[in-house]
Design a protein around this nucleic acid. Structure first.
Lengths: 96, 96
DNA sequence: CATGCCTGCTATATTTTTTATAGCATCTTG
DNA sequence: CAAGATGCTATAAAAAATATAGCAGGCATG
């Protein structure tokens, strides 16, 4: 899966995830949302734009059609994550 | 999605992916399959075992039930990747 | 029980990636 | 033209990953 190379890079999925609402985000807004720094954000954005997952239009950065399809394809993963997380940390409060 | 933090680390998904057949792999076999080095493999395996995605039993490393469920949840992503890859590189042969 | 091989894994030095921070150039608004 | 927002670059320091060597334990063979 070639896509894993791209998506496996640090913060790549996070950046796409932060754009999930469909609302365009400015460079700085995206930087804040993804809690990263401009150099990395720019590196990832360059890659994601080259991969046609993100576009930059007047209002800011947003997902392309492919990017939206990708997020759709991530739904089962998100569902799994919920189940898994619940099974993970019964480390809530050690019942004082 | 907390899971993205773990899965977004370099080679984490790759390692899970290499275990997809269900056949147990030894440390070295997994290292070869994922094309990585022992230090990183060990770091990831420690994380993945702590996350209960991978188990280490007699025959070698293999996916836990959670790990298998995760790979199932990745199927739509794999499908998407195929579509996306096809749309990506009409850079096949510039028609000599 | 010594030999060799496979196992899981650690140690070390080097290279690559990421981070934090400052700042530049452009555009818009008043 | 000042003031603020925008996209992005530069630089040095810190963190992560890499390549490589090698240790310690298990097991089989002679």
């Amino acid at each position: 899966m070639v896509a894993l190379d791209l998506l496996g890079r640090r913060n790549a999925l996070r950046i796409l995830w932060e754009l999930r609402s469909g609302e365009p985000l400015t460079f700085r807004a995206l930087q804040d949302a993804a809690q990263t720094n401009p150099a990395l954000l720019n590196t990832r954005l360059t890659e994601l734009r080259a991969a046609a997952l993100v576009v930059h239009e007047g209002q800011g950065y947003q997902l392309s059609d492919h990017g939206q399809a990708l997020l759709q394809a991530l739904h089962p993963l998100a569902d799994w994550a919920t189940t898994w997380a619940a099974s993970q940390a019964p480390v809530d409060q050690p019942a004082d």
